[in-house]
């Protein structure tokens, strides 16, 4: 169970206000997507969740505790690029986190522990479809495969929240679609919280259970930086009650099927029919 609270968070650089009055509360198993124009501060918001940047005012709590002032293993991340280590093989990349956990000085596990970890890493690679490439180096992989590797690398640490910073921005449309399916499924399977930044609106509404738009609410032509961006729109794309009932329906499905003999799967409620009032 992960509960995230962003409580009246501001980010300022001297006189320049980037973000102001950010308030969100995320219950467990939420897929939050942050959209907004370039430079509005959506990545800054994500970085504050990561502790790559520190809020100038306000606080961020995970499960009631303030987050550490530096990146920690409770928050995994996948960036648009440079998320994997080029000098490690695919398998080596995935095993890295647990190896660091298990061996403070050498950063390497041996014997039974290593075999167990390897099996776990291979299972994860199998899941993201990289098992055949386990011994390749990242530069031998395509962009989509590198991102899948970055996700597997983050997931093996079982973070409370997975942060995605425009993870599909550099991928071609076909690969991007496949990645959407994968991320969606991983989110369901691991019952985790995901916060994703994108500027692709259709992607946002396809994946998110909640979509927020970050934008300036007021612009002073004499002082462009006087007012920062804040959350201007907040959509419950797939409200929890709908998701819960959908899950119950799927749980009931085998029984219903046995009775009625129909193979219809209830469709996941889609937010595509909603339209955003973004300019």
């Amino acid at each position: 169970m992960t509960h995230i609270l962003i409580d009246d968070v501001w980010k300022e650089y001297g006189d320049i206000t980037i973000l102001e009055r950010i308030n969100i509360e995320l219950p467990d198993h939420e897929f939050l997507v942050i959209v907004g124009p370039s430079g509005a501060g959506k990545t800054t918001l994500l970085r504050m969740l990561l502790s790559q940047e520190i809020p100038t005012r306000g606080r961020i709590l995970i499960d009631g505790e303030p987050i550490a002032a530096e990146p920690m293993k409770d928050r995994g991340v996948v960036f648009q690029r440079y998320s994997v280590f080029p000098h490690k093989t695919v398998l080596g990349n995935v095993m890295l986190g647990p190896e660091w956990q298990g061996s403070a000085f050498l950063g390497r596990l041996f014997g039974a522990k290593r075999r167990a970890l390897k099996a776990r890493a291979m299972a994860l690679l199998e899941r993201v479809g990289l098992a055949e490439s386990a011994n390749k180096y990242p530069h031998q992989l395509s962009g989509g495969m590198q991102q899948r590797l970055a996700i597997a690398q983050a997931l093996i640490m079982q973070p409370k929240v997975l942060l995605l910073d425009e993870p599909f921005g550099a991928l071609d449309p076909g690969t991007r679609k496949a990645m959407h399916v994968l991320v969606r499924e991983l989110w369901e399977e691991n019952a985790m919280t995901i916060v994703m930044v994108t500027h692709d609106l259709s992607e946002a509404f396809l994946l998110g259970t909640r979509v927020i738009a970050v934008d300036k609410y007021r612009n002073d032509p004499q002082a462009q930086h006087r007012f920062g961006a804040t959350i201007t729109k907040d959509f419950d794309v797939r409200p929890r009650i709908v998701r819960d009932s959908w899950r119950q329906e799927t749980g009931r499905k085998p029984a219903v099927e046995a009775e009625a003999g129909t193979g219809e799967t209830p469709a996941m409620p889609s937010g595509a029919s909603l339209s955003l009032g973004l300019a």
Partner: peptide
Amino acid sequence: EQIIKAQTLGASTWQMIVHV
């Protein structure tokens, strides 16, 4: 990004120096 990623995987300063 690499340094941040290493930290989210739980690396200490020493581990980042040696392995990254």
